[in-house]
């Protein structure tokens, strides 16, 4: 029974330090991911983006955080206070806890670049992110008003339809790698990154990841044009901030997963090994974040019924077909 804890328990303080550092890094990268997004979207819309606070607007996240903290925290009269207060934390905690199993670079002798190197890594990530949506759907429901409720119903339906296709698209990679351990998956991409043999799976993953994180053009959960602010209409101040943080951290998470599963993780491009693995990893994640932002700046929001139809009638069958073909090829080639 001690099998689970014993390898780590001797170094519990190391785990604690890793957690602390990781928390700091993730929060900082959230802050600058937000700035990055505002800058890029600004440029694409022929604006300079935030540039007033600090040189190049670099202090903008700090000021934003301060603003959110100082704002009044409102709870509507019709809200269910318990769930209403709980929901942002569900979102945030699940978003953070994913990082416990993500490896950031090559494991060296006796250490891993992760808080915990779990063997079922990718499954654990899927499990944790599947809980994250409760923050949105419960929060929307508990707000006690109609727009958040609609947002929350949408999020539930959207999540169910897209999570399936997403998992299907990942299984192809798992078949090729023959393991569910994230380190193992990255190591098996040393020669060929999986986005080449699994190109269809890669595209499906990118699409479903956008839907999973409720980002434009699949941001029907928020849909400010029709639902005011969707699930977070009633939230204000720090609680809104928590949802906000969770959204960006989820973006980072799916970017990390895409990097690990399809883009070869910390494997260097073209033998450029003078950049350490962590550098490559971060570069690839940043690239993914850029794609995310790019999509948001380009495409208008898709209609709800089209979103569902697309998920069930296009992505899921294609993902299944991809899975079957991959399994067949792997079986034939032994």
């Amino acid at each position: 029974m001690n099998a689970w804890l014993s390898p780590q328990s001797s170094l519990w303080w190391a785990v604690l330090i890793k957690c602390g550092v990781l928390l700091f890094v993730v929060i900082t990268s959230f802050a600058y991911a937000m700035l990055f997004e505002r800058k890029i979207i600004g440029w694409m819309q022929l604006r300079p983006g935030p540039n007033r606070v600090g040189p190049w607007g670099l202090l903008q996240p700090l000021v934003d955080a301060l603003k959110l903290i100082l704002k009044e925290d409102l709870t509507p009269k019709t809200a269910d206070p318990l769930i209403y207060r709980l929901a942002p934390f569900i979102s945030l905690v699940t978003a953070f806890s994913v990082y416990a199993v993500i490896p950031f670079s090559e494991p060296g002798p006796g250490n891993v670049w992760a808080v915990g190197d779990v063997n079922a890594g990718i499954l654990v990530i899927l499990a944790i992110t599947s809980i994250g949506v409760y923050g949105i759907s419960l929060g929307g429901w508990a707000s006690g008003s109609k727009y958040p409720l609609l947002g929350s119903v949408r999020s539930t339906a959207q999540m169910i339809s897209y999570e399936l296709a997403m998992a299907m698209s990942l299984i192809g990679v798992l078949i090729l790698a023959g393991t569910t351990s994230l380190v193992g998956i990255v190591n098996s991409q040393a020669k060929l990154w999986f986005f080449i043999p699994q190109f269809v799976g890669f595209i499906i993953y990118v699409v479903t990841a956008v839907a999973e994180t409720n980002r434009a053009p699949f941001d029907l959960v928020e849909a400010d044009a029709e639902l005011v602010g969707g699930f977070n209409t009633e939230y204000s101040g720090l609680r809104f901030g928590l949802f906000f943080i969770a959204e960006y951290i989820n973006m980072l998470t799916v970017s990390c997963i895409a990097t690990l599963l399809f883009l070869g993780g910390w494997n260097a491009v073209g033998g450029l090994t003078m950049i350490p693995g962590i550098g490559w990893f971060l570069l690839k994640v940043a690239f993914f974040m850029f794609v995310y932002i790019w999509l948001r700046a380009t495409f208008p929001r898709i209609r709800y019924d089209r979103l569902m139809a697309f998920g069930w009638k296009v992505l899921l069958p294609v993902a299944t077909l991809n899975l079957v073909i991959t399994a067949f090829v792997v079986a034939v080639r032994g």
Binding site: L126, A127, S130, I131, V133, M159, A167
Partner: peptide, 16 residues
């Protein structure tokens, strides 16, 4: 993991 993915992720979601 399956407990979380299937029960929390899908079935309970339908309840909600």
């Amino acid at each position: 993991v399956i407990q979380l993915i299937v029960y929390s992720g899908a079935i309970l979601m339908l309840f909600v």
